[in-house]
Amino acid sequence: MSDSTAIAHGAAAGTHHEHPPYLRHHFESVDQQTDASNFAMWLFLLTEVMFFGGLFTVYMIYRNWYYPAFSAASHQLDVMLGGINTVILITSSFTMALAVWCAETRKKSGLVAMLVVTFLLGVVFLGIKGHEYKEKWDKHHFPGASYSVQAFVNPASDPLQVNAQGKPLAPLAPDMAARTEMYFCLYFAMTGMHALHMLIGMGILIFMIFRARAGAYTEGHSAYVNYFGLYWHFVDIVWLFLFPLLYLINRH
């Protein structure tokens, strides 16, 4: 190594054999590059796990403290809409997986189609989510000064406060009814963070659709689609936990 300076020029001039354009200068091989970026993507997702982990911790504590409020407030959510959204998200995850497969097997039109479908499913998901948000907003269930506990102290006045048999739920005592605001705080914080992740993902999807139409990803280097797929599946997984925890409390 002591004679390293002597041959500095030779190495820098680039005597590498087989140097595909997407291989970055500091990696020795494509395998090493793919391995490293794949690992990095996983680590990034793990930071996301911890981020949502903080929110889930808060949720866990308050759900234990104010279970009646959480149970009553969750009846304000529409299991049908939530269920449809879950199915949509799972489907989008599936189409994303197919997009990865198309990219790996170099099917350009398939890749574009799958990305578009994934994007559209994301739009539908957010549309339904937005509809749900609007409903909460109109009913003054958005936390803040104008929050209303009407539906919980007087469930008979609210068609949603019914149990599985269609009978009105028991009214909450006023102090417990006030705690439903905590539920909606968490509902908006958690689903909002999830929706934000979807929005970011869909921004990247648009970018990828254009690149894919120009022929990227299907020329042997599909890693980028794969990393995005990991992200999209992760967002899907978060929802798989949010759905039962927020929508399905005490539905019987």
């Binding site: 054999h17 087989e18 494509v30 395998d31 997986a97 497969w101 790996e104 599909s222």
Partner: peptide, 15 residues
């Protein structure tokens, strides 16, 4: 160093 067909190795089938 780089395997020309390394991309083919880990393809999960649509099934």
């Amino acid at each position: 160093m780089s395997e020309p067909n390394h991309n083919e190795r880990h393809i999960t089938s649509p099934t």
